[in-house]
Design a protein around this nucleic acid. Structure first.
Lengths: 121, 121
DNA sequence: CTTTTTGCAAAACCTTTGCACAACC
DNA sequence: GGTTGTGCAAAGGTTTTGCAAAAAG
């Protein structure tokens, strides 16, 4: 992968925030530094960075991809009302344990990705 | 909610399968029984059923919503290669425990939904 | 100089919605 | 009969892509 000023900027933006921005949020942040950057470039680089494992994607119920610069193993809490995404670092696994943080859990979606027996018997 | 033949059909289709179909898969199934049903009706009812808690939505990395007729608490395993979605019923929580099923876990996304402290102090 | 990346704009894609008509109760 | 649900088609919003020009090495 060749260096590009745009990609470095996008990486810095994601790594430098603790919220979990969408592509267009990153786009607007990037434009403050690089006014000519295009949305296509943002999308292209986000996909690239996610494929490389530099960042993580979060498929939420708002139908927009969110990106997370923290690739360490952790889970997330999303408020039904304000949509805020809160990192849940370990140890914090069961809904009961999360409740102890003052968050009331009403639902959970837990998806594991990997290789199935038929594809990699 | 008033009765409709189309909604009953859609509900039956989802409840009757153990895969996790997308809206258009449900649409094609439904057309075999009700050839005039429209895609809009399928989407409308899926949203309605999900809002009512009759079915569950699964936000996966393929950018299409998947639906699950089983609303009991369980998680999912998705194959990176073939995209198959496998139900992980309890007890099967940690990646290590899933590995014991012959599935090689390479990633996980665990999102809890609920009410945050600021919205419901 | 060759290859990768960008900007721009158009296209693709899934999902939602407006409206007139039909179905439900 | 009044209200809710449907079919159709168009619109909406996010993400992807083709292409010529620019940047990187």
């Amino acid at each position: 992968m060749r260096y590009s000023r745009q990609r470095e900027l996008i990486t810095d933006i994601i790594k430098g925030r603790c919220d979990h921005p969408t592509a267009d949020m990153i786009y607007y942040s990037a434009r403050e530094v690089e006014p000519n950057i295009s949305l296509g470039t943002v999308y292209r680089n986000l996909k690239l960075l996610a494929d490389e494992g530099v960042i993580i994607t979060l498929e939420t119920q708002d139908k927009k991809l969110h990106y997370d610069g923290d690739t360490s193993r952790h889970s997330h809490f999303i408020c039904n009302k304000c949509g805020k995404i809160i990192d849940l670092f370990r140890p914090a696994k069961t809904p009961d344990e999360i409740s102890d943080l003052g968050l009331k859990v009403t639902g959970e979606r837990c998806i594991y990705y990997g290789d199935c027996t038929e594809c990699f018997g």
